[in-house]
Deep mutational scan, measured.
Amino acid sequence: MPSETPQAEVGPTGCPHRSGPHSAKGSLEKGSPEDKEAKEPLWIRPDAPSRCTWQLGRPASESPHHHTAPAKSPKILPDILKKIGDTPMVRINKIGKKFGLKCELLAKCEFFNAGGSVKDRISLRMIEDAERDGTLKPGDTIIEPTSGNTGIGLALAAAVRGYRCIIVMPEKMSSEKVDVLRALGAEIVRTPTNARFDSPESHVGVAWRLKNEIPNSHILDQYRNASNPLAHYDTTADEILQQCDGKLDMLVASVGTGGTITGIARKLKEKCPGCRIIGVDPEGSILAEPEELNQTEQTTYEVEGIGYDFIPTVLDRTVVDKWFKSNDEEAFTFARMLIAQEGLLCGGSAGSTVAVAVKAAQELQEGQRCVVILPDSVRNYMTKFLSDRWMLQKGFLKEEDLTEKKPWWWHLRVQELGLSAPLTVLPTITCGHTIEILREKGFDQAPVVDEAGVILGMVTLGNMLSSLLAGKVQPSDQVGKVIYKQFKQIRLTDTLGRLSHILEMDHFALVV
């Protein structure tokens, strides 16, 4: 994948999101292997301009796509893939009243899908469409860049269908997702969380590099694949309309690839034109409109599966009536509230959605109805927002919020430890010299600072030695090549209790 991002070429006709291997024109390309080798690009942008032909009021008969309808489940399912879809609609009884809503608040519980998330729908649909058009064949390999849930859905379907599955996901995604993927037989590649989507090191860039190296491999490409919004247009939206008897006044959905909100909203605009569509985008993402909503100094966020630093091709923002931004604290607070007060075992993005819903639905009156999409299960986040310690460490809970008995030293300040200034190293000294210094002084790690004293990161003896043994660096290389740029900081005025929580999850903390 090139470091400079080429513009994806656009073909003359058809839909841009065809499933299957992508040609340089962004659509299915038939021909000899030699032709494909000559024409197939190194990668295709996940934010390529959409060429979708959908228009409100256009006859369904003019759609270029294969459409399906929700099917009634048999008493005995032939395999677990038949437990994807037909998820329950559940009334939220307490939270709406707590925040003064007059309307009825309903939750579409997508964590009841077989793999635990709304992404099971698009995973199965992308595979079925690729099999139907002859792209996927027995023994082929599926590769997908994902925040985890699409990966789980694909790995689940691949396990049943017999495909090899490789999932490329950023490091910030939970260990629970990784464990589930491994249990399903998927191979996992992790990428830096802070890598831009168009960087060769991003999950998108690495996935395309693997595709170019592995024979008979395919990126189904949830960011561009029409099967993504079509899955929701054909099934999720129809289920909502049936469950609500066609009567709903507002739908609120958090947005990642945009397939969920695009597919549902398009069908609702056709069948229930008075329904307002509300999009939820986390602070630090750029999906919301108008652009002024996205202006923030924050560039990272903890909530998973929603928000991006690019506009995915499948996201149709014209069908969203209003956007709201959400933050991590309210997302996790509301997710825990949904679990504790409503018994809905949902993930953090569901918290984002409901946090926005109780604001947006203030305009609705008694007798009206708001539906929220709860995308995934708490299963993926047992060591994250479900953990009091994690919430404390991230600053989303305060010590006084917890009532468990603490040891005698818990409320003492870090400054009472009488710490001395640490050994520091410059980023320009060599790895070999740094190892000598650390061994001589008896230290395992040291902060790396520039000549102005600005902290650049941390270097550890173990990481340097393993990097040297693996051949990633040489003793003569500058130590700046092996620094940890993500590390926890703590102030002298913070409590030892807070430091204790940090050290339970990290090997060190830097006192500043």
Results as ranks from 00 to 15, higher is better:
Pro2Arg: 15
Ser3Pro: 04
Ser3Met: 09
Ser3Cys: 10
Ser3Val: 15
Glu4Met: 04
Glu4Cys: 12
Glu4Pro: 10
Gln7Arg: 02
Gln7Ile: 05
Gln7Cys: 15
Gln7Gly: 08
Ala8Ile: 09
Ala8Cys: 02
Glu9Leu: 06
Glu9Cys: 14
Val10Lys: 15
Val10Leu: 12
Val10Ile: 13
Val10His: 02
Val10Asn: 15
Gly11Ala: 13
Gly11Pro: 02
Pro12Tyr: 09
Pro12Phe: 02
Pro12Cys: 02
Pro12Ser: 10
Thr13Trp: 02
Thr13Leu: 09
Cys15Asp: 11
Cys15Ser: 07
Cys15Gly: 08
Pro16Arg: 02
Pro16Gly: 09
His17Tyr: 14
His17Glu: 08
His17Asp: 04
Ser19Ala: 13
Ser19Gln: 12
Gly20Val: 15
Pro21Met: 11
His22Val: 15
His22Ile: 02
Ser23Cys: 05
Ser23Gly: 02
Lys25Val: 07
Gly26Leu: 09
Leu28Ile: 14
Leu28His: 13
Leu28Trp: 02
Ser32Val: 08
Pro33Glu: 14
Pro33Gln: 10
Glu34Val: 08
Asp35Trp: 02
Lys36Val: 02
Lys36Gln: 15
Glu37Tyr: 12
Glu37Val: 14
Glu37Ser: 12
Ala38Asp: 10
Glu40Met: 02
Glu40Val: 06
Pro41Gly: 09
Leu42Lys: 02
Trp43Asp: 02
Ile44Ser: 02
Ile44Thr: 09
Arg45Leu: 14
Ala48Glu: 06
Arg51Cys: 02
Arg51Gly: 10
Gln55Ala: 06
Gly57Ser: 14
Arg58Asn: 12
Ala60Gly: 02
Ser61Met: 08
Ser61Cys: 12
Ser63Arg: 02
Ser63Ala: 10
Pro64Arg: 04
Pro64Val: 02
His66Asn: 08
His66Cys: 12
His66Asp: 15
Ala71Arg: 15
Ala71Thr: 12
Ser73His: 14
Pro74Lys: 15
Pro74Tyr: 05
Pro74Val: 14
Lys75Arg: 02
Lys75Leu: 14
Leu77Ser: 04
Asp79Pro: 02
Asp79Leu: 06
Leu81Val: 12
Leu81Trp: 02
Lys82Thr: 02
Lys83Leu: 07
Asp86Gly: 15
Thr87Asp: 02
Thr87Gly: 06
Pro88His: 09
Pro88Tyr: 04
Pro88Cys: 11
Pro88Ser: 10
Val90Pro: 05
Val90Ile: 05
Arg91Gly: 13
Arg91Lys: 15
Ile92Cys: 08
Ile92Tyr: 14
Lys94Phe: 02
Lys94Gly: 11
Ile95Ala: 05
Ile95Phe: 09
Gly96Arg: 13
Lys98Ser: 12
Phe99Leu: 07
Phe99Val: 05
Phe99Asp: 02
Leu101Glu: 02
Lys102Phe: 05
Lys102Asn: 13
Lys102Cys: 09
Lys102Ser: 02
Glu104Ser: 10
Glu104Thr: 04
Leu106Ser: 06
Ala107Val: 15
Lys108Pro: 05
Cys109Asn: 10
Glu110Ser: 07
Glu110Gly: 02
Phe112Arg: 02
Asn113Phe: 02
Asn113Ser: 12
Ala114Tyr: 06
Ala114Leu: 06
Gly116Cys: 13
Arg121Gly: 02
Ile122Gln: 02
Ser123Leu: 02
Leu124Pro: 14
Arg125Ile: 02
Glu128His: 02
Glu128Thr: 09
Glu128Trp: 08
Asp129Thr: 07
Asp129Ala: 15
Asp129Ile: 06
Ala130Ile: 02
Ala130Gln: 02
Ala130Phe: 05
Arg132Asp: 15
Arg132Met: 15
Asp133Ile: 02
Gly134Ser: 14
Lys137Val: 02
Pro138Ile: 07
Pro138Gly: 12
Pro138Cys: 12
Pro138Gln: 06
Pro138Ser: 12
Gly139His: 12
Gly139Tyr: 08
Asp140Gly: 07
Thr141Val: 11
Ile142Val: 11
Ile142Trp: 04
Ile142Cys: 06
Ile143Gly: 06
Pro145Ala: 06
Thr146Asp: 02
Ser147Pro: 04
Ser147Ile: 02
Thr150Ser: 02
Gly153Thr: 06
Gly153Arg: 02
Gly153Leu: 05
Leu154Phe: 14
Leu154Arg: 02
Leu154Val: 10
Ala155Phe: 10
Ala155Arg: 02
Leu156Ser: 06
Ala158Phe: 02
Ala159Val: 13
Val160Leu: 05
Val160Met: 08
Val160Ala: 15
Gly162Pro: 11
Tyr163Ala: 02
Arg164Asp: 02
Cys165Ile: 06
Ile166Tyr: 08
Ile166Arg: 11
Val168Trp: 05
Pro170Cys: 05
Pro170Ile: 02
Glu171Ala: 02
Lys172Ile: 02
Lys172Phe: 02
Lys172Asp: 04
Lys172Ala: 02
Met173Ala: 07
Ser174Thr: 05
Ser174Asp: 02
Ser174Ala: 07
Ser175His: 02
Ser175Arg: 05
Ser175Lys: 08
Glu176Met: 06
Glu176Gly: 07
Glu176Ile: 02
Lys177Leu: 05
Lys177Ala: 02
Lys177Arg: 02
Val178Leu: 02
Val178Asp: 11
Asp179Leu: 05
Asp179Gln: 02
Asp179Arg: 02
Val180Ser: 08
Leu181Arg: 02
Leu181Asp: 02
Arg182Ala: 02
Arg182Cys: 09
Ala183Met: 07
Ala183Asn: 06
Ala183Trp: 06
Leu184Trp: 02
Ala186Trp: 02
Ala186Asn: 08
Glu187Met: 02
Ile188Lys: 02
Ile188Asn: 08
Thr191Trp: 04
Thr191Phe: 02
Pro192His: 15
Thr193Phe: 07
Ala195Phe: 02
Ala195Ser: 05
Phe197Val: 02
Phe197Tyr: 06
Ser199Thr: 07
Ser199Phe: 07
Ser199Val: 02
Pro200His: 11
Glu201Trp: 12
Glu201Ala: 02
Ser202Arg: 02
Ser202Ile: 02
His203Arg: 06
Gly205Ser: 08
Gly205Ala: 02
Val206Leu: 10
Ala207Phe: 02
Ala207Trp: 04
Trp208Ser: 02
Trp208Tyr: 06
Arg209Gly: 09
Arg209Lys: 11
Arg209Tyr: 09
Leu210Phe: 08
Leu210Ile: 07
Lys211Met: 12
Lys211Leu: 09
Asn212Asp: 10
Asn212Gly: 14
Glu213Cys: 08
Glu213Phe: 08
Ile214Phe: 09
Pro215Ala: 08
Pro215Phe: 12
Pro215His: 15
Asn216Arg: 06
Asn216Val: 02
Asn216Cys: 12
Ser217Trp: 05
Ser217Ala: 06
His218Glu: 07
Ile219Leu: 08
Ile219Tyr: 09
Leu220Arg: 05
Asp221Gln: 02
Gln222Met: 05
Tyr223Gln: 15
Tyr223His: 02
Asn225His: 02
Asn228Arg: 04
Leu230Ser: 02
Leu230Ala: 02
Ala231His: 13
His232Phe: 02
His232Glu: 04
Tyr233Phe: 10
Tyr233Thr: 02
Tyr233Ser: 05
Tyr233Cys: 02
Asp234Leu: 09
Thr235His: 02
Thr235Ala: 09
Thr235Arg: 04
Asp238Cys: 09
Asp238Phe: 09
Gln243Leu: 10
Gln243Met: 09
Gln243Ser: 05
Cys244Arg: 07
Asp245Ser: 09
Gly246Tyr: 07
Lys247Ser: 04
Leu248Pro: 15
Leu248Ile: 10
Leu248Phe: 11
Asp249Phe: 02
Asp249Tyr: 02
Met250Ala: 06
Leu251Phe: 07
Leu251Glu: 15
Leu251Thr: 02
Ala253Cys: 06
Ala253Ser: 07
Ala253Val: 09
Ser254Phe: 05
Val255Tyr: 02
Val255Thr: 08
Gly256Leu: 04
Gly256Glu: 02
Gly256Val: 02
Gly256Cys: 02
Thr257Pro: 06
Gly258Met: 07
Gly259His: 04
Gly259Cys: 02
Thr260Lys: 02
Thr260Gln: 12
Ile261Phe: 02
Ile261Ala: 09
Ile261Gln: 02
Ile261Gly: 05
Ile261Pro: 04
Ile261Asp: 11
Thr262Trp: 05
Thr262Gly: 07
Thr262Glu: 02
Ile264Asn: 11
Ala265Asp: 02
Ala265Leu: 04
Ala265Trp: 06
Arg266Val: 07
Lys267Pro: 04
Lys269Tyr: 10
Lys269Cys: 11
Lys271Gln: 10
Lys271His: 14
Lys271Gly: 06
Lys271Leu: 09
Lys271Phe: 13
Cys272His: 15
Pro273Phe: 06
Cys275Gly: 07
Cys275His: 04
Cys275Asn: 04
Arg276Leu: 11
Arg276Gln: 05
